[in-house]
Design a protein around this nucleic acid. Structure first.
Lengths: 248, 248
DNA sequence: ACTGTCCTCTTGTTATGACAGGTCATGGCA
DNA sequence: TGCCATGACCTGTCATAACAAGAGGACAGT
């Protein structure tokens, strides 16, 4: 637990101490040095470890608490929260965009990419003639090293064909916007709760009977053309979808 | 700016000082004593006004900042935030409204209405002082004669008390708007999948192990005051939530 | 008239010290 | 053996004190 803090007061101030401490603790949590429900060192231990006063430690812990990474119980200690990622959908963003913006470590593993005849529902959503081909991308998403969701994405041929051979472990939305120069517009989303099927269970490491949040998302470009239809299955215990809507 | 704080240390502690101060400031903001973009008294003024130390004032202000009611600028002061005037494209509808609009036969049965001390999460959502009372309404929703969802709604006292004795088998949103003349603004929604607990199963006629879609919805009036916090549990097999979002 | 310096007010950061009150294990007493 | 008191340890709250740093106005010099 040694640290290299640069003192703002004695030296030329780079960053407040409590921010440096907060970032170090967060990194350790996200990297798994401290695991969920594990107790963090007590405030006095952190004080001597970092060589700062209690108020500084508490300010760092308070920030982590506000971010939802830790919680504390009087008389017991401060503990790492189980990551319950909250994705805000006020703005349309991909999952990875949302998570990394919150400091989570998000990644994805490509399971398959292939061209196939569009399933009926997919063809209807993408406004394709039945029988037309689409490109299907199947990925597993990880949050803090744990499998979080299984994703099937379907793209029309002209877009999907360009994806073969590309790096697909990152976010797809920025890729569409930047590499393909496709301005994104509205997305339409459906959500339901369901029990996990066997294939999903295998990828997400779930027990039979555990629920999943099933999301269908159809993304359009700015001109209204549907360009990406996805089935997303999230572990029910570790994801919350969050958004705001206005009246009328 | 005189206040009646009850000192936790000298007296018998009712509530921490910073919470009392936070609640008083919040009330003044919500009641319009301090208007948006208006400067609050400086920290030293608040210190002498409340007769507490700076750390206590700052803790109260920090909480208000986290709730989004104020923001501060170094060297200038602390100011009241403007209640978000975000133009949303989406409809905020009660579920009943949405269903009847689609030709379904929707109804609700009132299970209970009571005044009780707000649970912590409810108090936080409605921005009430911890310990304040709220009115809880519990209902079961039916769609085409089948139980669809179990709903727990929490209202601040001034609104909730007016609901006793009213007809509560219909939609609550139109009631708020028309009978109570409360213009509705934004709602913030969280969704997750979970397994049904026993109480929910009983009301929704579910088998053990069946999943539910759990929704938390916090509705604000047009000025940004939170007025309705709800926990909704839907049968996972018979409901889909549908909405659209725009990019950026 | 314009500009740069300085002083003052403000919030931001940090230290030290103290007591309140919850949790839990240990050990003594019945 | 069982129960309870006690103390160690932990987070929660609050006070006092100091310096850093941004903002802005007063004021003097050009």
């Amino acid at each position: 637990m040694s640290k290299t803090l640069t003192r703002p007061l004695s030296n030329r101030s780079p960053q407040p101490l409590y921010l440096q401490i907060k970032d170090q603790l967060r990194r350790r949590i996200l990297e798994g040095d401290y695991r969920p429900h594990e107790k963090l060192p007590s405030e006095s231990e952190l004080m001597s470890a970092f060589g700062v006063s209690r108020i500084t430690i508490r300010q760092a812990l308070r920030d982590l608490h506000n971010e939802g990474l830790v919680f504390s119980a009087q008389g017991k200690g401060t503990f790492v929260s189980k990551p319950k990622a909250v994705q805000s959908v006020e703005h349309l963003q991909g999952f990875g965009e949302a998570m990394t913006a919150q400091g989570y470590e998000a990644s994805a593993r490509l399971l398959s990419i292939q061209q196939l005849k569009a399933p009926k529902a997919v063809a209807a959503a993408l406004r394709l003639a039945s029988g037309e081909d689409v490109v299907e991308i199947t990925r597993v998403r990880f949050l803090n090293r744990e499998a979080l969701s299984l994703e099937h994405s379907y793209f029309p041929l002209d877009i999907g064909r360009r994806m073969f051979g590309m790096e697909l472990s990152g976010d797809i939305f920025p890729m569409l916007e930047n590499l393909f120069a496709i301005p994104l517009g509205e997305a339409s989303i459906r959500i339901e709760a369901a029990l996990s099927d066997q294939g999903t269970r295998a990828h997400l490491n779930l027990q039979p009977g555990e629920p999943v949040l099933r999301v269908e998302r159809l993304t359009h470009d700015r001109r209204g053309r549907p360009i990406d239809f996805e089935y997303l299955s999230f572990r029910g215990d570790s994801f919350k979808y969050h958004f705001r809507v206005g009246r009328k």
